[in-house]
């Protein structure tokens, strides 16, 4: 069975692109295929001009493509701050040979801790830093995942329904924050979202999927008027009612 077939889309560097579509359209599957969590039968993934199709998820993440999960995967038996610190890139203390020699990584570790605190502060979790992540609510877990993804200093961050369960005011702030990161660091954002107001408000481009295919990719205004998009949503809704 094919969940995604013939879905081609492009995410422009430095853009905020959203991926939308009715339930079962293959959005999360597309994420899994691109980030290497699911092996594709065919097709290619090109990232920053290089073909990265067969790379593993950890390799892609180190190359700068970092994702979050729709069903959050926070590390509940670790503290919130440890969850964030884990994501730091290029940490010499994470190498086995250095583990015994703290002076080779003490400095970087302090740096990472500081940055992790800043990041937690940014998503409003600073007060929870020393708690076990298992004690967080659903919305807080989403936030922690976002913080963790950004800790990895990605060039492309892929967020699977980052706003689900997050309170709208905070959600708004986070979107602003992402927009700021784009201005400052050229961060590229691709996100899956159901809230059309959010999608139309922040996206430069919208990719619409339906039944495993990409229906269209266009700026928000065009997508809004596209009859095929309306059909896709109405079709899915019709089936759901039937």
């Amino acid at each position: 069975m094919k969940a995604v077939d013939g879905a081609t889309f492009t995410v422009r560097r430095g853009s905020i692109t959203s991926l939308i579509g009715p339930n079962g359209a293959g959005k999360t599957t597309a994420f899994n295929l691109v980030t290497g969590f699911t092996r594709a039968d065919s097709g290619t993934v090109v990232f920053e001009g290089r073909n990265v199709t067969r790379r593993g998820p950890d390799q892609l993440a180190r190359a700068g493509m970092v994702r979050t999960f729709q069903l959050t995967r926070v590390l509940g038996k670790m503290r919130v701050i440890e969850n964030a610190m884990l994501a730091a890139s290029e940490h010499p203390g994470e190498r086995f040979v250095n583990a015994l020699v703290p002076r080779r990584w003490k400095h970087r570790e302090a740096e990472v801790r500081e940055r992790a605190m800043e990041m937690l502060d940014q998503v409003g979790l600073a007060a929870k830093a020393e708690d076990y992540a298992a004690t967080l609510s659903g919305g807080q877990r989403k936030l922690l995942e976002l913080a963790r993804a950004l800790m990895a200093e990605p060039t492309l961050v892929m967020l699977d329904e980052p706003m689900a369960g997050v309170n709208p005011t905070l959600g708004r702030q986070l979107l602003d924050y992402l927009a700021r990161l784009r201005e400052e660091r050229g961060l590229t954002v691709l996100f899956i979202e159901h809230d059309m107001e959010v999608v139309m408000g922040v996206s430069d481009e919208v990719v619409v999927m339906g039944e495993g295919r990409v229906i269209t990719q266009a700026p928000p205004d065009e997508v809004r008027r596209d009859q095929r998009v309306i059909d896709a949503y109405l079709g899915a809704a019709g089936e759901a009612e039937a």
Binding site: T35, V66, F69, R73, E82, L86, S89, E94, A149
Partner: peptide, 21 residues
């Protein structure tokens, strides 16, 4: 060490560990 932190992450959720590299 941070090395053991990565091990604990792997223990709990391989996908989460892989997703951050």
């Amino acid at each position: 060490s941070p090395w053991r932190r990565t091990l604990r992450a792997v223990r709990e959720n391989e996908d989460a560990a892989a997703a951050v590299g």
